[in-house]
Design a protein around this nucleic acid. Sequence first.
DNA 1: CGGTTTTGACCTGCGC
DNA 2: GCGCAGGTCAAAACCG
Length: 323
Amino acid sequence: MSNETKDLNNYHFTSSYDHYNNISSQSIMNLVYLSGPSSYNANMISSQIGSDLQSSPRGACGLGFELSPSSTGFFNTSIDQENDFNNAYSYNTSHKSHEVVGGGGAIVESETKVSASPSSSEHHHGEDSGKSLMKREADDGGKDIDQRSQKVVKTKKKEEKKQREPRVSFMTKTDVDHLEDGYRWRKYGQKAVKNSPYPRSYYRCTTQKCNVKKRVERSYQDPTVVITTYESQHNHPIPTSRRTAMFSGPAACSYNSSSLSPVSDFIINTPRTVSHDDLFRAPYASMNVNANYQQQQSQEFHHESDFELLKEMFPSVFLKQEP
DNA sequence: CGGTTTTGACCTGCGC
DNA sequence: GCGCAGGTCAAAACCG
């Protein structure tokens, strides 16, 4: 077991988890994990998290989303691997109970966890795999050059290994495998996951010079939970065509999620992966974090700065609570 | 016809 | 060194 896994296990038994008791059967669970350098761009996080939460068909907005005061934790420990998420969820599910919240009697479960830290156990291949790197080197020159370049590549890789791409992961309770987030993705691979009947899919942003990747897999412990992991940062806005299709709000919504009304955005715009059935089944409730909740949360965090960081990362969530 | 998905092969890193 | 698992490539198939 890696050190990170240990960390994860530890942090799942912190006091914040005492509140993971408000859970429902047909609901949403968004576990957000951040990992990577501490300099991780908060804008990127908020835009990605915001858009993901807001556009997830059965996710934050799809079913109606209301943050339960007892369902959000903030963590500042090292986690990254998807297995860790499974571990996390196994802990959560073992402490489940149901709660009815939100308008219209919608049963909502929402959990948001945040961790921002350098990850140390992930492989990092930079912009390309070792295979393609070596292939290109071989194409450019002979064997000598190839061998030399391989050494250079190895050296570079060691350096790269120290600086890993930041990652953001979600656990979302949804029927839909590939959640819409406004960006355009091309699937470039699928692999069977060990000990899981569900494969992991690999997507890459189709925008030129954008190296953002995302992995999508279902939790084997709870098939209704989809784990989405984003890697790196988009260096471009959400594609216009997609944005107008996905969001009817301001053009800058993806980079200024505070201007979004997550509920209305979802209601007005239907992600293509959402069936009409899903829409009709989905009750709408507003994302609502009240002031008391904020106060409670700030007390709950170990450090005030942690809460501030969370607010910075999730402006779309915390802004809603202001009048 | 262009873009996307599928899928088997391949490469890399890690643990034993 | 070997086997395994994760990650990626790229040709073929598919689709609008």
